[in-house]
Write a protein that binds this DNA or RNA. Structure first.
Length: 721
DNA sequence: TTACGATCGCTTTTT
DNA sequence: GCGATCGTAA
């Protein structure tokens, strides 16, 4: 490939980044500014112009999807498969280093990964054994605490407890870490922290990697947490060049440890040059103008303003719905006209703040027979039946894996009850043995009731038999044999209803996935099973069925980051929903909510609809929310208010979508208690009550068909009969 | 061990 | 208001 082709079709700033001299660089890449393109071309440039070897390149992303896309596009650009290049996620790459140096890391060769569910179970068990009241110290909170400390790079010894409460949490952290270490288990945060420590404590090793990875590239840098930052810094050493790409305005993961200030820290620590990518190739001028204005309300930004040389496009449409049902109906009607315009369903996205909001929207789509796809939710490899099967495989490859042992010892039920189990646990604790060996020991002591002893003996035989059998089998056969002989298949086949059927199907799908699994050749796995187990822990298992079906795309604002759609609906844009109630309390959270809004808006290419409901059923109660402050932060000339055309008996007194009404206003509009009224949506009804003043004023009408409703500003759509 | 009634909790999520 | 989880009784 001709070198000049690498710069063709890039704008000046992109070109500047791709062809920059070897130095540390920050590429501040706005939404839709072509950052992946820059990363990919930079890698190609390093190889072709700077004659860097693939071996010296290290590129990190957050998600497997991003890593995969980067690899594919690099290979396309170079028109050659690349080998020796490390492209992967933080966890994937750290895991790879840990595997190679498991001895230095004090881990067994076949150490396994704990997901958050495993972690929680582990902590629950621990609390029981430590006699700690899980009402006073909820396991979730402890698990969160432990992960947060690890994300900060802290071990128990690095932490000083401020009060008795934290003292106890520290105690649990210590006990949890001991248990993990004994079982050969690492949680997600541990992968990075342990990798960091291994490198730090082994200068020779560290030097090897520092000398190898001369060119480092990091995507979505605004999402890095403290340990990721330290890890990168350690690996880079003083001789590597590192290019980070990120956008402080799109930092939306502060709540899970991401440090937006890492960008500024990078500039000073690495003495880096900054290049801004501000030309946007995605959205209309209006959408960009609105987004820019919104985000300007945040303080302490790096500063960046998106522009386009494309069209202004249509204004952003704002719809004030009566309630969440009306909002859903509105969305559906607009989706239908979009379809009628000859467009694809999959080009529309519905974005909401929280998952709970999806249900009403789904029902509305379902009613009109419109297909939809929901992002997020239970991942394939996290399903109960899948984890059961995987736990057998894990126990087979590592007898120390207590988490796996606990999971399958009595699944399917084989008469090993709580009593027998606590016997085993006691023995394990007393002798510092993994549960598997404790079970064997307990069996040999012969203190067990006959039935329990037989059950345990049979379980041990089962696992050992499986281990023998699996040796000469292919991966898919290994899974199949395990699922069948363990009795899992029979157990789920016996489960009645749709649920059981789905579970059996999932187990079959797991065997299928084993068959399709390709062991990454460059990563030195000791066996295909080891590779597959790592894959199931580090990869969510998406990308199965239905991905390409033409359907409305529904997701939270968080999961929309990085995606784009011609038509976007942002629903529930109300105070208390978005920004969320909780974000009002903690400092900094409001700005993160604003960034989230910015992310949502900048997903839209052609047309953006924003809606809010005046009344909404939430946790079983009717709530009245005013329109989000974010709406007020968008310049009015970017917005267009949509009102349903209703005939009102007299002109609406005041307020547009703000819903400002006074007592007097109700009377002025000619409504009185007991009066019969007509509503465009809800039909005929009787005025029951009105109350409040200002934005919170509302009128309660008992509709003949719908029942009673409190409506804010809805009086404007009421007609006196 | 299972089944069912009480209780809890309720943003956002990848690895 | 709903779904997951927990605790207790059969």
């Amino acid at each position: 490939m001709d070198v000049s082709e690498l710069l063709d079709g890039l704008n000046d700033k992109q070109r500047e980044a791709v062809a920059a001299p070897l130095q540390n660089m920050l590429v501040l890449a706005g939404a839709g500014s072509g950052k992946t393109r820059v990363l990919v071309h930079r890698i190609a440039w390093l190889m072709q112009v700077e004659h860097a070897s693939a071996y010296s390149i290290f590129a990190v992303t957050f998600t497997n999807k991003a890593a995969k896309e980067m690899r594919t596009r690099v290979e396309e650009t170079l028109q050659n498969p690349v080998s020796g290049m490390w492209i992967g996620t933080f966890h994937g790459l750290a895991h790879r280093i840990l595997r190679a140096h498991h001895r230095e890391a004090n881990l067994p060769e076949s150490f396994q990964i704990l997901d958050s569910d495993d972690q929680l179970r582990m902590i629950k068990r621990l609390l029981k054994s430590m006699n700690i009241d899980d009402k006073k110290w909820p396991p979730k909170q402890l698990s969160w605490y432990i992960s947060a400390r690890k994300d900060e790079g802290q071990r128990p010894k690095d932490i000083t407890a401020h009060d008795v409460n934290e003292q106890l949490m520290l105690q649990v952290y210590t006990a949890y870490q001991d248990a993990c270490d004994r079982a050969g288990l690492v949680d997600f945060a541990e992968i990075l922290l342990r990798c960091y420590e291994v490198l730090q404590q082994n200068p020779t090793l560290l030097r090897h990697y520092q000398q190898r990875f001369r060119h480092m590239l990091v995507d979505e840098f605004q999402d890095t947490n403290s340990i990721q930052y330290l890890w990168l810094k350690l690996l880079a050493g003083s001789d590597s060049n590192i290019m980070i790409v990120g956008d402080d305005d799109q930092s939306i993961y502060g709540w899970r440890g991401a440090r937006i200030e890492n960008i500024k820290r990078f500039l000073t620590d690495f003495d880096a040059q900054t290049i801004r990518l501000e030309q946007n190739y995605r959205s209309t001028g209006t959408i960009l103008k609105a987004s820019n204005a919104l985000i300007q309300n945040n303080a302490e930004r790096m500063g960046k303003s998106l522009w386009t040389d494309g069209n202004q496009g249509e204004p952003i449409s704002v719809y004030a719905a009566f309630n969440e049902l009306d909002e859903a109906r509105f969305m559906v009607s607009k989706v239908k006209s979009w379809l009628q315009g000859g467009n694809a369903l999959s080009d529309c996205a519905v974005l909401y703040r929280s998952n709970a909001q999806s249900r009403v929207l789904e029902e509305a789509l379902l009613q009109e027979g419109l297909k939809y796809r929901i992002y997020g939710g239970m991942r394939f490899f996290e399903r109960q039946e899948i984890k059961d099967a995987l736990s057998y495989l894990r126990l087979i490859s590592n007898r120390n894996d207590d988490a796996a042992f606990e999971r399958v010892i009595n699944t399917p039920a084989r008469g090993i009850g709580d009593k027998t189990l606590s016997h085993i646990r006691d023995c394990a604790r007393a002798e510092s043995l993994p549960l598997w060996y404790a079970a064997k020991a307990v069996l040999e002591q012969g203190h067990l009731a006959g039935r329990a002893a037989t059950a345990i003996r049979r379980f041990i035989e089962l696992v050992e038999q499986l281990d023998d059998k699996l040796m000469e089998l292919e991966l898919a056969e290994q899974a199949k044999t395990t699922i069948e002989l363990s009795g899992l298949l029979a157990m789920y086949q016996a489960e009645k209803g749709e649920k059981g059927r789905a579970r059996v199907e999932n187990l079959e799908e797991l065997i299928n996935a084993c068959g399709q699994f390709e062991l990454p050749v460059e990563e030195e796995f000791t066996s295909p099973l080891q590779g597959f187990l790592a894959y199931t822990s580090l990869e969510s298992g998406e990308g199965q069925a239905d991905e390409h079906e033409d359907a409305v795309q529904m997701m939270t604002l968080h999961s929309a980051k990085g995606l784009e759609f011609p038509l976007v609906f942002m629903v529930g844009v109300e105070e208390g929903m978005f920004p969320s109630q909780q974000s009002h309390e903690e400092s900094g959270r409001l700005e993160e909510e604003r960034r989230l809004c910015y992310v949502g808006m900048t997903r839209a290419m052609e047309k953006l609809y924003i809606s809010h409901a005046e009344s909404r059923r939430l946790y079983g109660q009717e709530k009245y929310h005013s329109p989000s402050r974010f709406l007020r932060e968008i310049p009015e000339d970017c917005l267009e208010e949509i009102r349903i055309k209703t005939q009102v008996s007299r002109p609406a007194p005041s307020g547009r979508f703000s819903g400002s009404v006074s007592h007097a206003a109700f009377e002025d509009s000619g409504f009185s208690l007991g009066q019969r009224v007509l509503h465009a949506k809800f039909g005929a009804g009787t005025v029951l009550n009105y109350e409040g003043s200002g934005a919170q004023s509302r009128i309660q009408v008992n509709f003949d068909d719908v029942g009673s409703k409190w409506l804010v500003t809805a009086y404007a759509r009421l007609q006196a009969l």
